[in-house]
Design a binder for these strands. Sequence first.
DNA 1: CCATAATACTCACTTTTAGTAACCTTTTTG
DNA 2: CAAAAAGGTTACTAAAAGTGAGTATTATGG
Lengths: 119, 119
Amino acid sequence: MADFKAEYLACPIRQVISRFGDKWSMLVLFMLHKSDTGTLRFNEIHKLMSDCSQKMLSQTLKNLEHYNLVHREVFPQVPPKVEYSLTETGKSLMPSLLSLVDWALQHFDDVVVKDIVRD
Amino acid sequence: MADFKAEYLACPIRQVISRFGDKWSMLVLFMLHKSDTGTLRFNEIHKLMSDCSQKMLSQTLKNLEHYNLVHREVFPQVPPKVEYSLTETGKSLMPSLLSLVDWALQHFDDVVVKDIVRD
DNA sequence: CCATAATACTCACTTTTAGTAACCTTTTTG
DNA sequence: CAAAAAGGTTACTAAAAGTGAGTATTATGG
């Protein structure tokens, strides 16, 4: 039983979900991926994801930086400039993430439309 | 601006995350996928995911049923028997989900191990 | 020369969501 | 006659997320 628990707690999908399975992380990664230059500034991301508060965006970026999916570069200017980009590890996640996006596109009608229509 | 907002709100990855990007949904789908028979009973899932409360498991299963990813079959017995399985839509999500699991396995060390060691 | 703007945040507070532990139902078993 | 079994629900508490205002520094406009 204890062995099972240890195995379960180490379950990779559980580990991933507990770290990046929140409301905003994947979306930030996706936005950075879609960016032409590969980089985005704080307020650019915020404009792209207008329903994510500054506070949550800040927390999300910190978290992604901590887990080495996102690189943060500060330019010592006034007003400040901070650029975010995907790390190599972050880039390596993209095929899987895009696969999920494809699924979402293909099954949008099955799953999502009824809710949107209801609004 | 309003146009952008509409497009953003319809963004498929956003739609998917808002519905199945919670703490337990993907894990339930994965457990049903791994099951030999393709079906699991409520308490079987609960034993497999012992840190998910009955309440949250119940909510998660209802949600997954609502979005047609999971099928719920009640057998009129006492004590009751309820079997859960993936629908065709649910099954169609598995390749993408498994791709994410693969990534998690490959990058476990990069991302996760430092946290586990810290505990 | 004082107000405003720009950027990338943080802080205090409220609301929403998740977690905990107890309870419910019916019937069989000890 | 009490306990167990399955699949939940309910009331309560804790944690997380959302909201709106505020912070720092410097340049620009009137």
